[in-house]
Amino acid sequence: MTGQASEPSYLQKKLCENRFVVTAELGPPKGADPEYVRERARILKGYADAVNVTDNQRAVVRLSSLASSLIMMQEGLEPIMQMTCRDRNRIALQSDLLGACSLGIKNVLCLTGDHQSMGDHKGAKNVYDLDSIQLISIIKKMRDEKKDFGGKELTKPPNVFIGAAANPFADPFEFRVIRLEKKANAGAQFIQTQAVFDIPRFEKFMELVRSRKLDNRLHIIAGVLPIKGPKMLRNMKENVAGVSIPDSLIQRMEMASDKKEEGIKIALETIETIRKIKGVKGIHIMAVAWEDVIPRIVKESGLIDVISQ
């Protein structure tokens, strides 16, 4: 992790030097509990170049991504702070971005955010003052033009590596690549994709990405989600928006004698295949409430060799 405020983040440095990266994800607790974050940071340290911190994911109130990112940094792990547009207006988002960068947080992932009807505060007021693309362009303006969205000069611009999400599995399919290009135009520098279960569709997506030369403009990190059992897959297929899960995968999990082992096996196979796809610059492992499995996956997939801490 880089120390100086003006230096690029470790993630940015590695990607710009064309080195393959590994990122992971940490979901903060529902409580003012820094120890929870510290424990998980300790598990992940040495097994990821940078770790995402979610922002009230699924519209469920949790320890803020900004605070969690700071706690993570104190453990020596580089955070990728997620920012969604659901809860904060442009004033709060710019303010929190300045806050994050002033504390040394250098990677930000800009997301639209799950609608509040998905979470545990369904009556909350809708914000969505900005969408993820507008947020990207505003952060870029703050960093490069040293101005806020209102046009006022900043005393010190934020030093930030801007990321966004891509979902090759939502509809309309063709539009997903256009949307990716929009994000690149707005100023996105790295992309993390939704979990890949449908490899052929992902390959098609990357083909379109390359045809539009987006692989030259964006560092694309492909998402992998190790599954614990067929129920989890079926639940995702039915309830989570924008996932594409082939039935053959569900069958495979159902027939497996040791579900968790099979889930790990599938994750390892997925990593092995997609890391070779041209344009893929890294793997993003999302082990939902199963952070302990990440060290094993990183080791057995051979990704441990690309991580140097």
Partner: peptide
């Protein structure tokens, strides 16, 4: 700026 990832 276009649909979110939840459009299916």
């Amino acid at each position: 700026n276009g649909p979110c990832g939840g459009s299916q």
